Amino acid sequence: MLSHFRHKDIDLQSLCPIRVGDGTRTSFWHDVWWDDMPLSASFPRTYVLDLHKHVSVKYRLSMGLGVHTLRRGSRGGVEQEQWNKFIGLLQDFHLRPVPDRLGWVNDVSDTFSISSARKLLDGITLSNGGISTHWNNWVLIKINVLIWRIRLSSIPTRERLSYRGVMVDSILCHVCSSTVETVEYIFANCSELISL
């Protein structure tokens, strides 16, 4: 199911960021919980030096921020620069007494709902055709549907069938055989059909 969305360039994971509470269920280095990428990608040199690569946020923070958590101390340059940024970032971070959870950026309450997900996916995947649909209750439903399909140009005319690879004898109007059979031509311009 998720691969279907990835093929349509819909990244559901970015819409559900991790909200760290007590830090027990979030991977310190590999989950995206700070900024927009894992800490292993933000601080690659510090990650390589760290002795504890597969631990939770809670466990890593409980160890403290000293160099004793590294294979060796930094050797200056980029390593030292990343280490200083890393320490600065974590000194201001505090765990809270609530469980870790996923957020939902598509709703102001930050809580996932089927309704908000459906609205998001419909907005991305469904084409509205640029026009709103107004149903007339005094007309039969099949007439409403026909008018709706005409407005969206989704009637299977000979031109559309040929474009989709269906073998047709000719793409000319089957009534008058003078012009290409399009939705507009059938319902507005074909002199033979207008006279009916």
Rank of each mutant, 00 (worst) to 15 (best):
P44Q: 01
V98M: 01
D92V: 14
S40I: 00
R101Y: 06
D92K: 15
D107Y: 05
T46R: 02
R45S: 07
V105H: 07
T157F: 07
P38S: 13
T157D: 01
L121Q: 09
S177F: 10
R101V: 09
R96D: 02
S113C: 03
S3A: 09
L120H: 10
T133P: 01
R75F: 04
E79P: 05
S40A: 13
R75V: 05
V166P: 06
Q82T: 10
T125L: 14
N189T: 11
R6S: 07
W138G: 07
Q80M: 13
V105K: 12
R60Y: 06
G23F: 04
R164N: 11
N144E: 14
S177C: 12
C173P: 02
M1Q: 04
D100K: 15
I124N: 09
R96A: 06
T46I: 08
D122H: 14
Q91C: 06
S62I: 05
S62M: 05
H7D: 15
I171Y: 08
R72S: 01
M167H: 13
V98Y: 09
G23S: 10
I186F: 07
I124M: 12
V145D: 12
S132K: 10
I10G: 07
D36A: 04
I141E: 15
L89H: 03
D169C: 04
L89W: 02
D31T: 09
Y59L: 08
C173D: 02
L102F: 14
I150E: 08
L15G: 03
K142M: 06
I143N: 08
R72W: 08
I194P: 04
L95R: 07
H30T: 05
L51I: 06
T179M: 14
T133M: 06
L70P: 03
F112G: 00
N136Y: 05
G77Y: 04
R75C: 09
V105N: 15
D169Y: 10
V98T: 12
V145P: 04
N106P: 00
H68I: 05
Q13K: 11
S40T: 01
F93K: 15
H54R: 12
G130A: 10
V20W: 08
V67T: 09
R19D: 01
W148T: 03
R19F: 14
S56K: 00
R72F: 09
P38Q: 04
R71V: 02
S132I: 10
D169G: 13
V57S: 03
A41L: 10
D31W: 05
Y185R: 04
Y47L: 00
G73L: 03
W138K: 11
S170V: 01
H54K: 12
K58C: 14
V67Y: 02
Y59G: 08
S177H: 15
W148N: 02
R60P: 04
F93Q: 07
P38D: 08
I155P: 05
V108A: 12
P97W: 00
L51Y: 07
H94P: 00
S191R: 05
R75T: 10
D11P: 03
F28G: 05
R45A: 01
D11Q: 10
E181T: 05
S116V: 06
I114M: 06
I155H: 12
D36H: 12
Q13L: 03
H68E: 15
T26H: 03
E184G: 02
P97T: 05
